[in-house]
Amino acid sequence: MATPDFSQIGGNTESDKKSFWSRPEGIFGMIVLAAIAGFGFLHLNDILEFLIRATSNILELSLLLGALGVLIFLFTSKDVRTAVFFLFKSLMRSITGTVIQLNPIAIMKIYVQDLKDKRQKMQGQIDTLAGQLVKLNKKINENNESIKQKFAEANKASSLSDRPGMKEQAQLATIEGAGLQEMNEKLAPLQRNMKMVLAFMEKVNQSADYIIKETEIKVRLKETEYQIVKESSNALKTAVSIFKGDPDKRFYFDESMEYIQDDMSKKLGEMKRAMDLSMDFINGVDIQNGVLSDKGQALLEAYNKGEFGLIQTDTNAAPNPITAPQPGQINPPKDAGYRNLLD
């Protein structure tokens, strides 16, 4: 089913360009200007008080007149007005664009809801128009019944025209019937127009329902696509961040790596120094073991040749008079063995 073309309704608007004030940024600009005007109106007393106080001082009055002259020049200069207007338009457009960028899907849904509200309003108007058409049809039918009744009364009165007043009554009934007929003749075109408008409104309602459903499908599709693209973009950013790394986290990682490298170098240096110091001791022990081994080998050879002499102890020797305990002395003095050593 092709989308109906309603561009010709109410005239051709394709060639009519929208002015700035009819665009979204223009509407927002009018709201801003209205807010500024309202603020000025609310603080009008403060502004007047400032002006009165400023005019009481010559210096302040001079500055005020100078500022007023500058403002008059700015307002009367076409170039300045054009520049300010374009600056204002750019600012309003930037703010509107920022609002759109915050949540474009929500704005699209608001637009769809606005279409639904307008369709509901149009349905109410269709119901009202249908009610008026029913009233009009009822009025025409009532007039037809009244016409029949009046013409019947006129015929009855004409048949009794020989009676007094019947002729006038017949004329009155005929006039009333003719008036009702004339009313119906004028109401008939209105009835046809109302039927045409009502039929057209019904078609517009059906087309609007189709357009709204199609727009809803587009919004849901765009929402899904936008969500998928956002998730894909976030996933891609995460993947890229693996290679690039977070700057702050990367800094701490590099610092930790450098600390570990320095600590390992320090500990390896300490281990090398400890090994160097222990090598001197190990070499000395090896040399001493070698000397003892050579000496032991020489003693072994002497022993095998019978040239090795063992050290003998004299077990029958008399006790040392210095160290031997005296009879009757239980505990000799501790220095008894070396008391007279130097005498």
Rank of each mutant, 00 (worst) to 15 (best):
K230S: 10
I100V: 10
T96A: 07
F253Q: 15
R119M: 03
K230P: 02
K218G: 02
L198I: 02
E301C: 06
A35K: 14
E49Y: 01
R273V: 06
E270Q: 12
Q326T: 02
N143H: 12
K267W: 14
T98Q: 13
D16G: 04
A83S: 06
E202N: 14
G337F: 02
Q329W: 01
S62Y: 12
K186V: 07
K218D: 10
F200D: 14
L71F: 08
A67T: 03
I126N: 01
I212H: 01
M30P: 02
Y210I: 13
F6K: 02
R119F: 03
T215D: 12
Y303F: 10
A37N: 10
Q125I: 06
D209L: 11
I72F: 09
L136Y: 00
I147C: 08
F75P: 00
L299H: 08
D280Q: 08
A152S: 09
N205H: 14
L68E: 02
K237M: 12
Q288W: 10
L221C: 14
E176V: 01
T224Q: 14
E14H: 10
L180M: 05
V291I: 15
A336C: 04
V84Y: 05
I100T: 09
Q120K: 15
P247R: 11
L71K: 02
K195V: 10
P4S: 09
K118N: 14
P247L: 10
D286A: 05
G245S: 12
D16C: 12
E182Q: 10
V70D: 00
E214G: 03
M264T: 08
K266A: 15
Q261N: 10
D162T: 02
L102S: 06
K237F: 13
I140V: 08
D276V: 08
T76I: 03
N137V: 07
S241H: 11
A152N: 09
S278C: 09
T76C: 06
Q181P: 12
N155I: 12
M194G: 06
R81C: 06
T315Q: 08
L68M: 05
P333N: 03
K156M: 10
N57I: 04
S161N: 07
Q227T: 11
